[in-house]
Design a binder for these strands. Structure first.
Length: 564
DNA sequence: GCCGTTTTCGGCCCGACTGTTTTCAGTCG
């Protein structure tokens, strides 16, 4: 029984690579550790079996230095090599990577020459002008770092929704275990599925708030009583959690009020003329108020009280999905593993799309590798019948707006996800023209992650949405709702506008592993926040209609290239 | 550090951008 599995080992090797990059001028040394980490991840065999059989060193990328580290991890679950490195640097030094323009090399120099290992020390050094004087640094870098610190600070109090969901659910379970707690529910921006949040809220029903307050002290590390009904607490290194207490009889109002948004709640209370309605559940509260129930995702503004209620799309409405990567490019699971996970989700169809040729950094496929990939799909799809497997690609939209691979190769695909992966800094008009030109290519089926944003890391590139939506609608090119929790791109705030202009959406996981197939769920949050029903999502269609659509697109691209 | 030799050193996935440089290193995708 191994004490470390391949994922743990890969993480250790990656961490070692980071430390080496800090200190060692030979960049290829850290690369070697990264390559070994990827090699370990891609093993198809149990790593402890491999070690036991003495065949570890047959793996490409594992040699006489990294091999023993892996053997030690398998045997003891620990690495002395990593521990020594950790001792040489203060904990948390890698947090500084959140400052844009600061990479591992610069971080290494800053620590070496100035002893800088925290945001505060970095800011002080920059303000005193010490950074500009360092070799290979200068005044512009120093200014950039100061700006970067601002960005990092602003983001420090913000968290991804998925983090809030995890913390909220954990707290809810612990609350539910307290005797005096009748009911507990995660509310606030987490319940509204807002993509960026600042805190976690929980509504608690109890007849003994004193006892619950006492018990809460054991649930969190830090604790502050705001008033009789409200307690704020913090778990170590986590965002603040607000606990809102009420009697079981008024729990419905408690849930409504603490779910928010403030604007929505105010509109609700105005509508019922501030009558003090009591109800044990939120649904009862709506009923007593004579207002049709509003899904929590749809409670951002007062307008949400007025719009016509529709049944919002749910994950179970999706009959398949697209934009799935495999080990052929930068995915971590094989073709068969990804197909199997689609089948296990009960899908009728799935579309595989590895990166295109120019995406070297992501292992983009040359035409020769594409042949191999398609041959493997043809072989493995027999094992997952009746799942229908569509052949696709995530093709780069090149800086001039043309699509990577060119028409001869693009013809081979059932669908093409076209995405921007380079030159993010293009001016708005150029970036817009670039995407508009991509929409002219008849091979393009979907536009992937339209704005390229990475939540809390970088803003998306700026584009003129109206022009892109209009043309996408005219050309019959669909726009992806990328469900990766780090992206959630397109932003839900833009979707209603796109819909009014005739755009069709499709919810994709952008999955790089089996686990990431569940990103379609976060994708549905975006769609629900925008008020979309199943009828407005392409991949709720049954497989024969999807096939029909692709066939029609192919005919179109054939006729257009004839005319050209 | 790993690999693979025209076997014990030299190359290692690309390209744009930026700021620091007189020719290139670090960062980002």
């Amino acid at each position: 029984m191994a004490l470390a599995d391949k994922w743990t080992i890969a993480r250790v090797l990656d961490e070692i690579a980071q430390y080496i990059e800090l200190s060692d001028p030979n960049r290829f040394k850290s690369r070697a550790f990264e390559r070994a980490a990827r090699a370990v991840e891609n093993l198809n065999e149990d790593i402890s079996d491999l070690v036991a059989a003495g065949r570890l060193y047959e793996t490409q990328g594992i040699g006489k230095a990294i091999g023993p580290i892996i053997e030690e991890l398998v045997a003891t679950g620990d690495s002395r090599y990593l521990k020594d490195l950790q001792k040489q640097y203060p904990a948390g030094i890698f947090d500084l990577l959140r400052v844009p323009a600061l990479g591992l090399k610069k971080l290494g120099i800053l620590y070496d020459k100035l002893g800088v290992a925290s945001l505060e020390e970095l800011e002080l050094a920059a303000r005193e002008g010490k950074i500009a004087k360092l070799k290979s640094f200068g005044p512009k870098t120093q200014t950039k770092i100061l700006e970067g610190i601002e960005t990092a600070r602003k983001r420090e109090s913000q968290y991804l929704l998925t983090t809030g969901l995890e913390i909220g659910e954990r707290l809810r379970e612990r609350l539910a275990a307290i005797d005096e707690v009748e009911d507990a529910e995660v509310t606030g921006s987490v319940r509204r599925r807002l993509e960026i949040i600042r805190n976690v809220n929980l509504a608690i029903a109890t007849n003994d708030s004193a006892a619950v307050q006492k018990a809460l002290k054991k649930v969190v590390d830090k604790f502050e009583v705001i008033d009789e009904q409200t307690v704020r607490g913090w778990a170590r290194n986590e965002m603040p959690a607000w606990f809102h207490l009420s009697t079981p009889e008024t729990f419905g109002a408690n849930v409504l009020r603490t779910t928010g948004s403030a604007e929505f709640v105010a509109a609700f209370e105005k509508k019922v003329r501030n009558a003090r309605l009591t109800a044990r559940t939120e649904h009862d509260l709506f009923k007593r108020a004579g207002i049709p129930f509003v899904e929590p995702e749809r409670r951002e503004s007062s307008e949400d009280l007025k719009v016509k209620r529709v049944r919002l799309v749910e994950p179970s409405d999706l009959r398949g999905t697209f934009h799935v990567h495999t080990t052929y490019s930068d995915g971590r699971n094989s073709v068969l593993q990804m197909l199997t996970s689609a089948k296990d989700r009960g899908y009728e169809y799935v579309g595989i799309s590895d990166h295109s040729k120019v995406a070297y950094y992501a292992g983009g496929l040359t035409e020769a590798r594409l042949d191999e990939q398609q041959a493997e799909i043809a072989e493995k799809e027999k094992e997952v019948k009746p799942l229908r497997v569509f052949r696709g690609t995530e093709a780069d939209i090149l800086p001039d707006g043309s699509i990577d691979y060119g028409p001869e190769t693009l013809k081979r695909f059932d669908f093409v996800v076209a995405s921007v992966h380079s030159q993010f800094g293009m001016p708005k008009d150029e970036m817009t023209e670039r995407i508009l030109k991509a929409l002219d290519d008849p091979h393009v089926t979907f536009i992937g992650h339209l704005t390229g944003r990475k939540l809390l890391v970088r803003d998306g590139y700026s584009v003129e949405f109206d022009r892109i939506f209009d043309k996408a609608a005219r050309r019959g090119v669909m726009i992806e709702i990328n469900g990766n929790p780090n992206r959630l791109d397109l932003d839900w705030r833009h979707i209603r506008n796109a819909l009014d202009r005739g755009v069709i959406f499709s919810i994709h996981p952008d999955a790089h592993s089996i686990a990431e197939m569940s990103h379609v769920i976060s994708g549905t949050w975006v769609a629900r926040k925008a008020g979309l029903s199943a009828q407005q999502i392409f991949n709720t269609l049954p497989v024969d209609e999807v096939e029909k659509h692709f066939a029609a697109r192919r005919k179109l691209s054939a006729s257009r290239s004839l005319r050209a």
